[in-house]
């Protein structure tokens, strides 16, 4: 009896030790995989930065060691990218367009989202389905008529011309509506009885509790605007009015200055990277909230 208990204890201890060792092994394998993944994602960025700091003779040199370790660090690539190309102008253009689009998307989405979530009016549900349908329409289908509109308005080669097509994002309306539907309506009812107008209810009661959705939508709209490529490419052909991504493609040529181009690419990615590192939580929240855009 006693001996069998003892064996059992020993066996249990052994199997526990074995289990622990197995967990260590398993965790190790998972970590190895995670690290490989992180390298696959991270190395291209590191390579971009290394290239952006290399002198030309290092960039166009054959041999692994020589191309990994620069003979000297050349900050001038950044300076030249900044002075040889209107990089500051491109960044300013992008910032203006992105800020305008984001502001407009926020205002229109909050208003319409609230109307769809709370206010009863004739044709509301049909209209909401129409908006859902609008999310399905790819920009390529509306591209040519939109181009015609903007051309007839005389807005080709202007920042207004870029921004006008993205003043409303229907996924934003959808996101705000879904969020507001989940806000309990007791507070609103009380305010209504006190005689607040719907606009005040929205501004003072609904909006403050909708901040997570507002943050997620701002991020989605801003990154979308910053990285948007096709439409600005169609509307703009003057270098001075280009956004940063269109500007980057214009730097590519038969004799691409890779050092400067990589410096410019690094600069172009910097603002969103800073935003991402600071507000990481809100970036992924947007996807989970809409399940669609990103």
């Amino acid at each position: 009896m006693a001996t069998s208990t003892a064996t059992r204890t020993v066996e249990a201890a052994r199997s526990r030790a074995w289990a622990r060792r197995r967990r260590w092994l398993e965790d190790g394998a998972v970590y190895a995989f995670l690290i490989v993944g992180a390298l696959a994602v991270g190395l291209p960025y590191i390579w971009m930065i290394i290239t952006s700091l290399k002198p030309d003779q290092d960039i166009f040199r054959v041999g692994i060691l020589e191309s990994v370790v620069p003979s000297s660090i050349r900050w001038e690539n950044y300076l030249e990218a900044w002075t040889d190309y209107p990089l500051g102008r491109w960044l300013a253009n992008t910032l203006i367009v992105a800020a305008a689009e984001t502001t407009s998307v926020l205002i229109t989405s909050i208003l319409a989202g609230y109307a769809f979530a709370r206010l009863k009016f004739w044709g509301r549900d049909i209209l909401f389905y129409c908006y859902l349908g609008a999310m399905m329409v790819p920009i390529q289908v509306t591209l040519i008529p939109s181009f015609i509109i903007v051309r007839n308005l005389g807005m080709l080669n202007s920042l207004q011309g870029i921004a006008v097509l993205h003043l409303v994002q229907f996924y934003g309306v959808f996101l705000m509506r879904q969020f507001m539907l989940n806000i309990p309506s007791e507070l609103e009812d009380a305010a209504r009885i006190d005689g607040c107008s719907w606009l005040r209810v929205l501004a003072q009661i609904i909006l403050p509790v909708s901040m997570p959705a507002v943050a997620a939508l701002s991020i989605l709209a801003f990154t979308g605007a910053w990285n948007n490529f096709l439409w600005p490419l169609v509307v703009i052909n003057k270098p001075d009015i280009m956004t940063i991504v269109v500007g980057l493609t214009s730097m590519k040529s038969d004799v691409t200055p890779w050092g400067q181009l990589m410096a410019a690419t690094t600069i172009s990615a910097l603002p969103l990277t800073i935003l991402y590192v600071t507000f990481q939580r809100f970036f992924t929240q947007g996807i989970v909230m809409t399940g669609i855009k990103g």
Partner: peptide
């Protein structure tokens, strides 16, 4: 009623955009 009035007012900006940059382009395309 006031509620419907506000509802239409709130939807109006996106509705105008919807007509100009979705409905018309889809048809014209």
């Amino acid at each position: 009623n006031e509620q419907a009035r506000y509802g239409v007012m709130f939807v109006l900006p996106s509705l105008v955009f919807f007509c100009i940059f979705i409905v018309w382009p889809v048809a014209y395309s």
